[in-house]
Design a protein around this nucleic acid. Structure first.
Length: 420
RNA sequence: GGUGGGGUGGCUGAGUCCGGUCGAAGGCGCCGCACUCGAAAUGCGGUAUGCCCGAAAGGGUAUCGUGGGUUCGAAUCCCACCCCCACCGCCA
């Protein structure tokens, strides 16, 4: 959620910001008009209540002469005004929820992923003395990914990871958790179901509204699309002390996404599925440290990729392609030889105080008594499925086998992926 | 699913039977001051948040799980819901 005071005081900047994100800036004008009307009404209501409190005190002191009839009248007026005030506030807040976080000034302006800016390419793209196959062809030959049987059991966009692919998953998890916890992150296995109210407070209302989240109807719960959704609210309504910051978590969870609106895209294989596992970093930091933390998270992501020896590139995501709650976002895209292009495997987001305001995650600065909002950031450790895809493609051999990246070999216990 | 107990400020915990002087005792923690070479201990003082008005000082208002009701007035009474804890049952 955006700060209403920021909107009031910096109308033009906010309008410009939301427009860059592809949101109609007229909403801001509409919001401010509602806000104005609401404030007048709220003031009138407060004044009436103040009068009521006075009258009430008189009655308590037995000065009931005329007071009781005045009190009855006040009560009526207050009831009426109060309904109006509630209604106006609601209208304002609905509009407030329709505004995304404002991108930083220096974020590249653009419409979609084509306008993202490549920052660097890292790692050598593998050269093959044969025509590299796509991961699914290789994996199906080895019997380690099975989407056909998964379709029978659960429908499209699911997959079985078998044998070596499953081992690869566990190896990646252990490798990531070990590396990231060494940096002081607290490992966490969070709930994968979440209440809608919490999801909205995390600034992820669109995940529900766009029908991208799976709903457990009977219990009014949603399946998370990322452990970010339930790690963030770990400190909901809490006020930490400055010395507790930064607070860093590395979570592991399954993620569920309906992938609504992506019909026909990546329908083959496990690149875009309803269910995948992910290691995720999440930081709560001092507001002045969030840009620094953002770089730190990105550095960890790159370190993991370099140790895996996968070629990747880092892009800064443009305003139009950014996530709703982000002020700045980087993506890491990994090279897929069969497609001869980089495909998104990681994202790294600074949500500034946008999520923190929603979940009221605050801290008290040393020597002050007024709490302020922290900044929160989240970054992919590994999206396991997509990383497995990248490994299969980049580490395939002429014989149709797949080598295990050296750094993972101690976890898989073999240099080649086990076949079924 | 069953039975019982409970949700009060940063934490703990009184108040709820018998509605008004209760934004709410006490304790802990935290901040300041005093004492001290310094620290501990001790003493004194301070210490919730949101919203609105105000340049500020300050003022108003709301908040005792949530929503509704009764009332001139609700932490306190009534109704519904949510959540937590303990034990039992079931279960990976």
């Amino acid at each position: 959620m955006l700060d209403i005071n920021l909107i009031r005081e910096h109308v033009d900047a906010v309008k410009e910001g939301v427009a860059k994100k592809g949101v109609d800036s007229k909403i801001v004008d509409k919001l401010l008009r509602r806000d104005e009307v609401w404030r007048e009404k709220a003031k009138a209501l407060d004044d009436l209540k103040a009068e009521q409190n006075e009258v009430t005190k008189e009655i308590a002191k037995k000065h009931t002469k005329g007071a009781l009839s005045r009190a009855r009248l006040l009560k009526q007026q207050i009831t009426k005004l109060s309904d109006e005030e509630t209604h106006l506030k609601q209208q304002r807040d609905v509009l407030l929820e329709k505004l995304p976080n404002i991108p930083f000034d220096d974020v590249p302006v653009g419409k979609n992923d084509k306008d993202n800016v490549e920052l660097r390419q890292v790692g050598k793209q593998p050269e093959f003395d044969f025509k590299p196959k796509d991961y699914l062809t290789v994996a199906e030959q080895l019997g380690i990914i099975d989407v056909k049987r998964a379709a029978v059991v659960a429908g499209s966009r699911f997959g079985y990871l078998l044998g070596g692919a499953a081992r690869l998953e566990f190896a990646l998890i252990q490798f990531a958790i070990e590396t990231i916890t060494a940096e002081g992150f607290i490992p966490v296995v969070p709930p994968v179901m979440i209440r809608p109210e919490i999801m909205r407070r995390m600034g992820k209302g669109t995940f529900i509204d766009d029908h991208d989240a799976f709903r457990i109807d009977e219990d009014d719960l949603y399946l998370v699309g990322s452990s970010e959704h339930t790690i963030g609210p770990l400190h909901i309504d809490e006020t930490l002390r400055e010395k507790d910051l930064p607070r860093r978590y590395v979570g592991f969870s399954t993620c569920f996404r309906r992938e609504a609106g992506s019909y026909g895209r990546d329908t083959r294989g496990i690149l875009r599925v309803h269910q995948f596992d992910k290691v995720e970093m999440f930081s709560f930091v001092h507001p002045e440290k969030s840009e620094e933390e953002h770089q730190f998270l990105l550095a960890i992501q790159e370190c993991l990729m370099q140790k895996l020896e996968l070629p990747y590139r880092v892009v800064e995501v443009c305003t139009g392609d950014m996530t709703w709650s982000d002020a700045r976002q980087y993506d890491i895209e990994t090279w897929l030889p069969s497609e001869k292009q980089y495909r998104e495997t990681h994202s790294c987001s600074n949500t500034t105080d946008f999520q923190a305001r929603g979940i009221r995650a605050r801290f008290i600065q040393e020597g002050m008594n007024k709490p302020q909002y922290m900044h929160t950031l989240n970054a992919t450790g590994f999206a396991i499925g997509r990383t497995i895809v990248a490994i299969i493609e980049n580490y395939q051999t002429k014989q149709g086998t797949v080598r295990v990246p050296p750094v993972l070999q101690s976890w898989t216990g073999s240099k080649e992926i086990d076949v079924i």
